[in-house]
Design a protein around this nucleic acid. Structure first.
Lengths: 140, 140
DNA sequence: GCTTGATCTAGAGTCGGCTCTAGCTCGTAG
DNA sequence: CTACGAGCTAGAGCCGACTCTAGATCAAGC
């Protein structure tokens, strides 16, 4: 493959990652990036494809609830290079577990909501007789 | 069924809902409860079973990402009584959609993490030859 | 030459959701 | 009678993750 990109500006990266330019600078300050972004003339950031790829990963991790400090930790390990694979795997497996748990929790909540919806729907169908409730119309 | 409970103190409710007493008072101030909690002698809160049931629902909604203002809105509708079933259903269906979307997003993220885990694991198994990466060892 | 728009830095502000503090009142146990 | 623990209110504080502001720089187009 040829050189895919000569480097992207912060604005372009914002577009393709969905992060704001503010967030991009913020992430860099926070050490979420594996390395500080290369600078072009005038001190402007020039993102490599690799940076963008990493940012996409970060977006995914954030979307699945990984806090920034954990992502920074991950980045630290990658930055330090070989010899940390075990640790990296540990982090990833932990997150995997957390995401799985989240999905379970959400599935459970979804169930409850779905039940509530069908009981309301039934009530409406049966003609609007009887009080609305289903849960707690008023305290005592 | 007989009167199951003569009313619970805030501490007891905290125990059974998993919310802190602070959070319970906070929720009440925020109008998340359908009605302000009954007060016993000395102005202390006395929670009915219904209150507790409602709080359990709130905990579930929060756990599935519903913001407090939305829960308050829901509570408002319940409080206002009959004639708002449609609106209530709209709220619930919307949340249902959001939770479903969340689950999809998480499932996707889980996939990515799982892939990353297997590729790291493979690398480790193949003997520690080659660089760690997988994504972005360093910028440019 | 001048304006426009994107970028830069440092640092302040915002928002949601609690959490904690201070200072007071109860009810019960010793 | 006093000490404790639980509760009360009003309001301040905190944390995470951004978001925004001010004031400066720079490249490109008119």
């Amino acid at each position: 493959m040829p050189e895919t990109n000569p480097g992207l500006s912060i604005g372009q990266v914002a577009e393709r990652t969905g992060l704001s330019v503010h967030a991009l600078r913020f992430y860099e300050r926070e050490g979420v990036l594996v390395a500080p972004v290369r600078r072009g003339p005038g001190g402007r950031r020039v993102y490599s494809d690799r940076d963008v790829e990493w940012l996409h990963l970060c977006v995914n991790l954030r979307a699945s609830g990984m806090p920034l400090p954990a992502i920074r930790q991950y980045a630290d390990l990658v930055r330090r290079g070989a010899g940390n694979e075990e640790h990296l795997l540990t982090l990833l497996r932990q997150h995997q577990g957390e995401v799985t748990a989240q999905i379970e929790q959400l599935t459970e909540s979804l169930d409850i909501v779905t039940h509530k919806i069908s009981s309301y729907t039934e009530q409406l169908a049966e003609g609007a007789t009887g009080p609305i409730m289903c849960t707690a119309p008023q305290s005592s």
